[in-house]
């Protein structure tokens, strides 16, 4: 499993990523019941060609309100696309931005919602699929967005994956995110898009769920080489998942399961890990703050919890 790595030296300003907008919503930990608490929009960034712009805006979404609220309510990722009114009624006016589709990813820790990360995706070859469990214990598509994959799109709506089958089934089975490079050649990626003009080169599966070992849904992000999701997409796997009791700053070690992180430096990795272990929620890396490797302008680190401990980290660098 390779690719996605972009040598900082090779970065050019011409390169555009598929994700060009990031929002992070936080559910403050309160004693109140879900219906009374409110999601707060903490950060919103537009990732442009040259720079990363922070949008100074605060918003609040109740249960079921807006895209973040509905992801919270449905307990699964939500997709909104195109001229959908909900997109336009977003707390931040994004109508001026080249955003085709919005994807809200809930982040859970110990059965509790911690964050909702909303990605805005620009036009470009690829697709987003949300696979959710149906009444037969199989994964079926509950929301999707495709570009240039009409045959793939058609057949996918009739495809079901039981636990363990295909990329979504595999994510469900072990509850871990994964990166599939060159999906057309990967035995795990079963559906074929050979009939379509667009060719996918990258596939990322993210299990989303509230229970241990059970994914209510799986997000599948598909993209081609020319326009990756992010300039660097990394998945790190936790080595020892149980933090020592009573230790406020547990030494959690991570190893990358998908990408060679030597360029980023193991020290840097450790520092990021430590920060996530302390905050226990989605981490943003901005150019102002320390910890962003040279050549990158922005980063998002999404944790995947198993009960209280962190199993995996998805690191997106822009």
């Amino acid at each position: 499993m390779t690719t996605m790595t972009l040598e900082p030296s090779t970065l050019t300003s011409e390169l555009l990523t598929l994700i060009n907008y990031v929002e992070v919503w936080t559910l403050p930990a309160t004693d109140e019941s879900e219906s009374q608490s409110v999601l707060q929009l903490d950060h919103a960034y537009v990732i442009g060609r040259e720079d990363v712009r922070r949008l100074d805006s605060t918003g609040r979404n109740g249960l079921g309100e807006g895209i973040a609220g509905s992801a919270w309510k449905q307990q699964r990722p939500v997709i909104l696309q195109g001229e959908n009114s909900a997109v336009l009624q977003h707390v931040i006016d994004i109508s001026g931005l080249p955003i085709e589709v919005l994807l809200a990813i809930p982040v859970y820790r110990d059965y509790q919602l911690v964050n909702v990360v909303v990605f805005g995706l620009t036009a470009g070859c690829g697709g987003v699929e949300i696979w959710s469990r149906d009444d037969r214990d199989e994964l079926a598509i509950s929301g999707s967005y495709y570009e240039g994959l009409s045959s793939f799109e058609f057949i996918s709506q009739y495809v079901r994956f039981p636990k363990g089958a295909g990329v979504p089934g595999a994510c469900w089975k072990d509850g871990r995110p994964r990166i599939i490079a060159q999906p057309h050649a990967a035995p795990n990626f079963i559906r074929s898009f050979d009939k379509d003009p667009a060719q996918l080169s990258q596939c990322i599966g993210l299990p989303i769920g509230r229970e241990y070992g059970f994914a209510g849904s799986v997000i599948l992000l598909l993209s081609d080489e020319a326009k990756p999701l992010a300039r660097n997409f990394n998945l790190w796997q936790c080595e020892s998942s149980t933090p020592t009791e009573g230790d406020t700053n547990p030494a959690v070690r991570f190893t990358s399961s998908s990408l060679d992180t030597s360029d980023l430096g193991s020290d840097w990795c450790q520092s990021v890990c430590d920060r996530v272990a302390i905050d226990r929620q989605t981490l943003l890396l901005t150019s102002g703050s320390d910890g962003l490797p040279v050549g990158f302008r922005f980063g998002v680190v999404i944790p995947f919890f198993c009960n209280e401990s962190i199993d995996d980290l998805a690191v997106l660098l822009f």
């Binding site: 199989e138 057949i155 009739y158 495809v159 079901r160 994956f161 039981p162 363990g164 089958a165 295909g166 079963i190 559906r191």
Partner: peptide, 21 residues
Amino acid sequence: DRICMMTNGPEATVGQILEVP
């Protein structure tokens, strides 16, 4: 009504299911 595609053995299992509408 639906087709269950099996992976190759050994350790064969369901690879994918296709609904036929």
